[in-house]
């Protein structure tokens, strides 16, 4: 191949090359996290490679307080997801399906938390809790998480409900389904993907939140706060083990889901 053709070909695939480079940039830290989960660091910090070891994988809870914080984060994420999903779904339905006074202010109120740097929300919420003399901890974290996840649920569910044909619900009512039956048998199943998307997003946001939690946690330690603290005091290898395990499990679930839905679609069209 002469160099000119090679150059021309490279130019044609410029987008592909640039895109894959970006992807590498995004994946690189995960690879590092994974590789360093097999490290046996010399000091307290796990930043430079020493030699291969399975020690951390053998005792994932070996670092004091790590698994406790992980459990707490999961617990808060589950409750925050349930709370935000229920409240957000209700708002989304009201916004799409009903006419009412004050739609403008409601929309702004939904939008503003997303347009606000986290640190501002974190600081102002702390001011409230301090003024009320509230005990910082599990409940203040949960309250804060529901608050900032709510808007994202509204957006996700709203998009889905908006694209839903209102005639489907009319058809259900026409076919002898009362209001409750219509909601349970038609509206909810069809809105489910949007609600699921909102719930997943809530879970991820809550589980991974650091800034707002850091302000309002008091002495309670969630998983991100544990990682933050260890960045100051010394990073146990187990952090990398947990990070890698979550990454692998999540990717496996996604891939399995893809395979199942793909197979189901094929089976459906073949029957």
């Amino acid at each position: 191949m002469n160099p000119l053709t090679a150059l021309r070909r490279a130019r044609r695939h410029l987008v592909v090359i640039a895109g894959l480079l970006t992807l590498a940039y995004m994946i690189l830290p995960n690879v590092v996290v994974m590789v360093f989960s097999f490290n046996k660091p010399t000091g307290r910090f796990n930043y430079s490679w020493n030699h291969f070891s399975l020690d951390a994988w053998k005792s994932p809870c070996g670092a004091a307080g790590l698994c406790g914080s992980l459990g707490l984060s999961l617990q808060i994420a589950v409750y925050a997801t349930i709370g935000a999903t229920v409240l957000g779904t209700m708002i989304a339905f009201a916004l799409v399906r009903y006419r009412f006074h004050g739609r403008g202010p409601v929309n702004s109120l939904i939008f503003l938390p997303m347009a606000m740097p986290e640190v501002v929300m974190a600081a102002s919420l702390l001011t409230l809790f301090l003024n009320l003399g509230a005990q910082l901890g599990f409940w203040t974290i949960l309250i804060a998480h529901i608050m900032f996840c709510l808007s994202f649920v509204v957006v996700a569910v709203k998009a889905r409900v908006m694209s839903m044909d209102p005639r489907l619900e009319e058809a259900a009512r026409d076919l002898y389904a009362g209001p409750v039956q219509t909601f349970l048998r038609v509206t909810l199943p069809i809105a489910a993907p949007g609600i699921a998307a909102g719930a997943l997003l809530s879970f991820a946001l809550s589980f991974d939140d650091f800034i707002i939690t850091n302000f309002n946690a008091g002495s309670t330690v969630t998983f991100p706060m544990f990682v933050w603290g260890s960045a100051q005091r010394g990073t146990p290898v187990q952090i990398n083990v947990i990070g890698t395990a979550m990454f692998v499990i999540a990717v496996l679930i996604v891939v399995a889901g893809q395979l199942v839905s793909g197979r189901r679609a094929r089976a459906g069209s073949a029957s």
Binding site: P29, A204, D208, V227, A231, I239, A250, V251
Partner: peptide, 14 residues
């Protein structure tokens, strides 16, 4: 989306 599944603090430390 996958990187999201590892806490962003861990990834930033990487």
């Amino acid at each position: 989306i996958a990187p999201f599944f590892t806490s962003f603090l861990i990834r930033t430390l990487a």
